Simulated scan of single mutants.
Amino acid sequence: MTLFLQQLINGLALGGIYCLAAVGLTLVFGVLGFPNLAHGAIYMLGGYVTYSMMVDVGLPYVAAIVCAALVLAVIGVIFERLVFHPLRTAPHTHHMIATVGVMFFVISVVQEVWGTGFLRMESPFSGRVGLLGAEISAQRVLIIVTAVVVLLALTWFLKRSVHGQAIEAVEQDRTGAALVGINPGVVSMVTFAVSFALVAISAGLVAPIQLLSPGMGESLNLIVFAIIILGGLGSLPGAILGGFLIALAEVMASTYISVGAGEAAIFVVLMGVLALKPTGLFGTVAQR
C-alpha cells in the first residue's frame, strides 16, 4: 500500500508536467489548426533558460521559473510573428515544415550556448514529505500544487479575460470571430505566448528531477502528441485528463512490471481509448 501511494503521487506529479505541456500544444492546435512539432524543443529551451536564471543571474528557484516563463512567452510572440504569421494563408503543411525548422534551430542554439552535455539544476525543495507511511519528494508535491494552480489560472484566463475569450472564439470559428471584430493575428500571438510560457513552467519544475540535455524534449514531444490525441484534438479538458491518465499508466506499469512496460503502457492506453472512441475522450467528429 505504501509503494502504491508513493507511485500514485509520482504519477500525479508526472501528470502535472504532461498536462502543462499538453495544454500549451492543444491551444496552438485549436487556434491555428496545426500541431507544433517544435514543442519538445521549446520545452527543452525552457529548462535551460530556467537554469541560466538561477545559475547565471542568481534568481531564487521560483523567481527563475517565472522569469523563464516570461522570456519564453516573448520568444513565442517573436516566433509567431517571424515564422508563422507570414504563412497564415498557406496550407497547414507549410506550417508543420516551419515547426521542424524551428525545432532544429532551437536545438542548435541550445547546443551552442549551453553545450551538448548534461546539466543539473538544484532546487530548494529537496526534502521529503511523509504521507501515510510513504516518503514523498517535496519537489513532486511542488509540481502537483503548481500544476493545479496554473491550470486553474489558465481556466480563469480563458473563461473570464478578454484575450482568453477571444482565443476560445477563434478556436470555435476563426472566420466568424474575425467578422465580429476579433483580430486573429493578435489571438495567435497571445496563444503562442501562453503555450511557450506553460511549457517553460513544466520544464522548470521537472529540471531538478531530470538532468537537462539538448535531447530532453524528444521523448516529451511523442508523449504530448499521444496525450492530445487521447484527449481529443483541440480539447483542453481532454489534454488535462489525458495527461494524468498517461502518466499514471506509465508510472504504475514501470513500477509493477518493467520500465519497458511503462513506455508501452502509454500507447496501450491510447489505442484502447481510440478503439472505443476514435475521436478521443472529448473530441468530436467536427474537430479540425
Rank of each mutant, 00 (worst) to 15 (best):
L20P: 00
A73V: 11
V141A: 10
A265Y: 05
G238T: 09
N10W: 04
N221H: 11
T255F: 13
F29W: 05
G117S: 12
V206F: 02
M121N: 01
T284H: 13
L131W: 15
P35R: 02
E135H: 12
L281W: 10
L25V: 14
D56T: 14
V31L: 06
C67R: 03
Y18Q: 06
L248N: 08
T89W: 11
I229M: 11
R140V: 04
I182W: 03
G30W: 02
I136H: 04
L132E: 09
V145P: 03
L32D: 05
G204K: 04
I201H: 05
S137E: 13
I107S: 00
L274H: 12
A253E: 08
T191I: 10
H92Y: 11
G215A: 14
S161E: 13
M53N: 15
K277V: 06
G283F: 00
I42M: 15
I65E: 03
A286K: 14
G11Y: 05
T26S: 11
G164D: 13
E122P: 04
A38Y: 05
Y61V: 08
Q172T: 09
Q7N: 15
P86K: 12
Q172E: 13
G283S: 05
T175Y: 12
A203I: 06
V141S: 02
F34I: 01
M54G: 10
L5M: 14
M96D: 07
I75P: 00
P86R: 07
V170N: 01
V100E: 08
F244Q: 05
L151D: 06
I246Y: 09
T255P: 00
V268L: 15
Y256P: 02
A166G: 11
K277W: 04
L20W: 04
G164V: 12
A68G: 14
Q6V: 00
T89V: 08
V162S: 12
K277T: 05
T50I: 07
A69F: 13
P237H: 14
M54C: 13
G115R: 10
I42F: 15
L211T: 13
A21T: 11
L211D: 09
A286Q: 14
S123E: 09
G33F: 03
A13I: 06
G11E: 10
M103A: 14
L152V: 14
V57N: 07
S126T: 15
H95C: 12
Y51W: 15
R140F: 03
F192V: 07
I201E: 02
A90Q: 13
A64R: 00
G76Q: 07
I9D: 02
A207R: 04
T191D: 03
L222V: 15
F282C: 07
E112I: 10
A13L: 09
A207N: 07
A90Y: 15
G133D: 07
D56V: 13
S213T: 10
P124S: 10
P91M: 12
A63H: 08
P278L: 09
G280E: 10
